[in-house]
């Protein structure tokens, strides 16, 4: 087991390296650092001296791959590739254009993100499974058909609509909770509740439909027929036997998402003004703060790979048929 995990972790390194190279190519070769400086300073008639000055103060005044002026190891370490890209591996995210420490920002902002994303995931999972089981229980009846059509319709509505409609109905018309904002500590619940509900509803259509197919697939298996032939009722088979077995693909599908919860949801956070990592990214994109975007790309890829590894491990946990050699 340990050897397997180690193997997977080692395999993650070339992938992260690839991610870094892609981002590096995107950020440094399509536009030269000079172009970036000009775009950031904004003025079309700008002096070269100002460009050089900006580059020097943000550490972009080095060659891309190999520094011929330096000696020894510094030939490689004193380059943009090393300083801006490879240092991410040491979790050295550097400073944003606004001279803020990105690592500190990320640490501070991940808590509000988690406060929204964790309840949304857990309650959403519960709701989705319940609806999926109901549809599976009434399979091939009008209730099931109606359920599937409603799921399809719910999938066809943009998340933006759920958010805007939720804010309008609950906050503006009924004044139950504030429209947006956040506060630390326990008082945060009234800011969290609406985004969580909206997040659950917007994921319900796709989620319940997907889980329904998983349940139906499981119900076509032989052990279900045996159990029914033995005289067990449909309900007992569904809720006792099928429920547990269909949980395997559902849970392993969810495990991939767990690390990514840290990053939070772009849309929910920014509409509800939650100071999490989602808003951090949107703000960085809007202000064209490239160091933050680069750091977040790296972090996102890292968390995704962590999710994949966790998925593989969880398979062996929940499903004894899967063994790792």
């Amino acid at each position: 087991m340990l050897r397997y995990i180690l193997q997977r972790v080692l395999y993650a390194i070339p992938i992260l390296l690839g991610v870094n190279i892609i981002t590096f190519l995107l950020f440094f070769t399509i536009n030269s650092p000079d172009d970036m400086a000009r775009a950031h300073l904004g003025d079309r008639h700008i002096q070269q001296a100002e460009v050089d000055n900006w580059k020097a103060s943000h550490g972009y005044d080095k060659p891309l791959f190999i520094n011929y002026d330096a000696q020894g190891v510094k030939k490689i370490s004193q380059t943009l590739l090393f300083e801006k890209s490879l240092r991410l591996f040491m979790f050295d995210f550097g400073y944003s254009y606004g001279d803020r420490d990105i690592k500190a920002d990320v640490k501070e902002r991940m808590w509000p993100s988690l406060a929204i994303a964790v309840p949304a995931l857990l309650i959403g999972l519960l709701v989705n499974i319940t609806f999926a089981m109901l549809m599976a229980f009434f399979r091939a009846s009008h209730i099931d058909t109606l359920g599937v059509v409603i799921c399809l319709a719910m999938m066809s509505i943009s998340t933006l609509f759920y958010i805007i409609a939720g804010q309008y109905l609950i906050s503006k018309m009924l004044h139950w909770v504030p429209i947006s904002g956040y506060s630390d500590g326990l008082g945060a619940w009234k800011f969290i509740i609406l985004p969580v509900i909206v997040g659950i509803i917007s994921g319900l259509g796709a989620g319940a439909r997907w889980y329904r197919t998983l349940y139906l697939e499981e119900m076509g298996k032989d052990y279900v027929r045996t159990a029914r032939a033995k005289g067990l009722s449909d309900g007992v088979v569904l809720f006792k036997h099928v429920f547990k077995n269909a949980l395997i693909p559902i849970l392993t599908g969810v495990v991939v998402l767990i690390p990514l919860l840290l990053i939070g949801s772009l849309l929910l956070e920014s509409f509800f003004a939650i100071p999490g990592l989602g808003t951090y990214m949107i703000d960085a994109i809007a202000q064209q703060d490239f160091p933050i975007v680069r750091a977040m790309v790296f972090l996102g890829a890292l968390l995704y790979i962590a999710g994949l590894i966790l998925t593989d491990i969880s398979y062996t946990w929940v499903d004894p048929r899967v063994r790792i050699r």
Binding site: L26, F27, R294, Y304, I305, L308
Partner: peptide, 14 residues
């Protein structure tokens, strides 16, 4: 493994 939105954002910004 690069989150979709971020890859799109990075490319469009460039």
């Amino acid at each position: 493994s690069i989150p979709g939105v971020l890859l799109i954002a990075a490319a469009i910004l460039m």
